[in-house]
């Protein structure tokens, strides 16, 4: 099957049911997307597929055939940070950091669809992303800062 990841096309030959998460991590060597639970309970595996945030542990490879995937590596780099990443660094959000790729991808998707979310909206959208270190208070603040940046405020 063929998928485009961060604008690069790849041909992969794997089982149709191999989760996209493992295609990214093991087949393509893109390890920014993380494995935390495998059952869509933690959100660490969140990527964008055809513009929509999805848990890549739930997407079988065959469903990603022909899709455009963006991972955390494609969202922004240390040299060219996405506004959400800038906000994450400004607020010093991460502790262990393992959940943060997924948090950032979900936050970027949220702000893409809703540039000025309320507290309730942030809580509704982000509560699928688990953080064992408990960085939620700073994530909330960073989402608001990122939204302001993206609105040019």
């Amino acid at each position: 099957m063929r998928l485009t990841v961060n604008r690069t096309p790849y041909d992969v030959d794997v089982e149709p049911e191999m989760p996209l998460l493992w295609v990214l991590r093991d087949e393509l060597g893109l390890t920014g997307t993380k494995y935390g639970c495998g059952i869509a309970q933690c959100g660490a595996c969140t990527v964008h597929m055809d513009g929509m945030a999805v848990r890549s542990c739930q997407i079988p490879a065959e469903a990603a055939d022909g899709a455009e995937i963006v991972t955390i590596e494609g969202l922004g780099t240390p040299e060219a940070l996405h506004a959400v990443q800038q906000a994450w660094i400004e607020h010093q959000v991460a502790q262990c950091g393992y959940c943060q790729s997924g948090q950032i991808m979900q936050a970027a998707s949220l702000l893409d669809m809703n540039p000025d979310p309320s507290d309730e909206e942030i809580d509704r959208v982000m509560s699928g992303n688990l953080c064992r270190c408990g960085t939620y208070p700073r994530i909330r603040a960073a989402v608001k800062t990122a939204g302001a940046k993206m609105r040019g405020a």
Binding site: E17, T46, A53, V54, R55, Q58, P60, A63, V125, G128
Partner: peptide, 15 residues
């Protein structure tokens, strides 16, 4: 659509 799409976690797949 207003918050988190069901499809974020629930894939569309007949597998």
């Amino acid at each position: 659509a207003e918050f988190l799409l069901c499809q974020t976690c629930h894939a569309t797949s007949a597998l």
